[in-house]
């Protein structure tokens, strides 16, 4: 891609990231050779089912993985410096300050014994030259911004006095407290009910506009990505299967796995008789993953070569790439290539 050329627009570039967990059962290769670029002000969606390596990729970027997880190789270039080489002390200055994270379960992500106000203020005080009083003012502003009513009074409340949606708003307030350049949201709406989900998404969208923060949105909900992202990365078995703009993925997908995901989601235009098609089988075991494409065992179009050799990424056009043998010039012509085009017509 030419994006390396226009360097100033790139905020984060992950190259050949490999992350493994060294468990009793062997090395779990959770992330295998992932390349990922996030531009300034961009919202990138990372989708995939559980265990596809989405969260581990995010945790690797912030180097939040704990024993037995470890980054094996690769670079995480953030604003020109490689985070993979940074010390823990240097990472502390970046976490919560330049790159912050929202987690999946707001019910457990806040400390139950500390007031919500203090949990926001401590991040501010850690990273900014503000005293307690100024930090408090800022925290109240943040709570107002994430639309928590009666913010000043609620500063003194504990997390158990908030609902799930309200807690996620608090998490967002914490994450935005130092105006980060990158916000990693790891399934921020998964644990919430649908109404709250849309409220939180709307809030994130608005705040994105206000702060011009880049967002890496991890989710397994395609509806969420379509709503807010400009680019989508589809992950499976610790690898990136397909990457492209929202239109590329939804209307011109060139990967059997992405198509499988799209077919398994209900669409408003479907007639009532038609059934959703689940992807058969289960995700691969990442301890000694099989040679070849990780999706091959579940793929309807799998060929001989798919089980023995992993395909390279093929660029369909600028910004749209897919890792599939079917796109190889010597591959037999398959009807699947046009299938993605019809899905949402």
């Amino acid at each position: 891609m030419n994006q390396e050329m226009k360097d100033d627009s790139i905020l984060l570039k992950v190259n050949h990231l490999q992350t493994s967990f060294f468990t009793h059962f062997g090395e779990v290769k959770a992330v295998r050779d992932v390349d990922l670029t996030i531009n300034k002000g961009e919202v990138v969606g990372v989708v995939g089912e559980s265990g596809s390596g989405k969260s581990v990729t995010a945790m690797s970027i912030l180097k939040l993985l704990q024993h037995p997880g470890k980054i094996i190789s690769g670079n995480i270039i953030y604003k020109g410096q490689d985070l993979a080489q940074r010390s823990e002390k240097e990472m502390r200055k970046i976490r919560g300050n330049e790159i912050s994270m929202i987690f999946q379960d707001p019910m457990t992500s806040l400390n139950p014994l500390i007031t919500v106000g203090e949990q926001i203020m401590e991040t501010i005080i850690e990273h900014q030259p503000l005293n307690k009083k100024q930090a408090k003012e800022k925290a109240i502003n943040l709570l107002n911004m994430v639309k928590i009513p009666d913010a000043e009074k609620r500063m003194k409340d504990y997390p158990f006095e908030f609902s799930g949606g309200m807690r996620q708003r608090v998490m967002i307030a914490i994450a935005l407290s130092c105006e980060p350049d990158l916000l990693i949201a790891d399934e921020p709406t998964t644990a919430l009910d649908v109404t709250t989900q849309s409220q939180i998404l709307k809030l994130m969208k608005n705040l994105k506009g206000e702060f011009n923060t880049s967002i890496m949105l991890i989710t397994h909900d395609l509806g969420v990505v379509a709503d807010i992202c400009s680019r989508i990365v589809v992950m499976y078995g610790g690898m990136i299967m397909e990457e492209g703009s929202v239109e590329d993925i939804f209307y011109r997908s060139k990967h059997p796995y992405t198509l499988g995901l799209l077919k398994s989601v209900p669409r408003p235009d479907m007639d009532q008789q038609s059934r959703l098609e689940p992807i058969k089988g289960t995700p691969p075991n990442l301890v000694n993953p099989p040679e070849g494409c990780p999706f091959a065992p579940r793929c309807d179009y799998a060929m001989k070569i798919c089980t023995t050799t992993c395909p390279e990424h093929t660029y369909i056009q600028e910004g749209h790439r897919s890792m599939c043998w079917l796109l190889h010039e010597e591959a037999p012509k398959s009807d699947f290539l046009s299938e993605g085009d019809e899905l949402y017509e």
Binding site: L62, R95, G96, S109, L110, E122, T123
Partner: peptide, 11 residues
């Protein structure tokens, strides 16, 4: 999870 949050805050 809240310990992960605390680390994520850069404390």
């Amino acid at each position: 999870d809240y310990m992960r949050t605390a680390r994520g805050k850069g404390l």
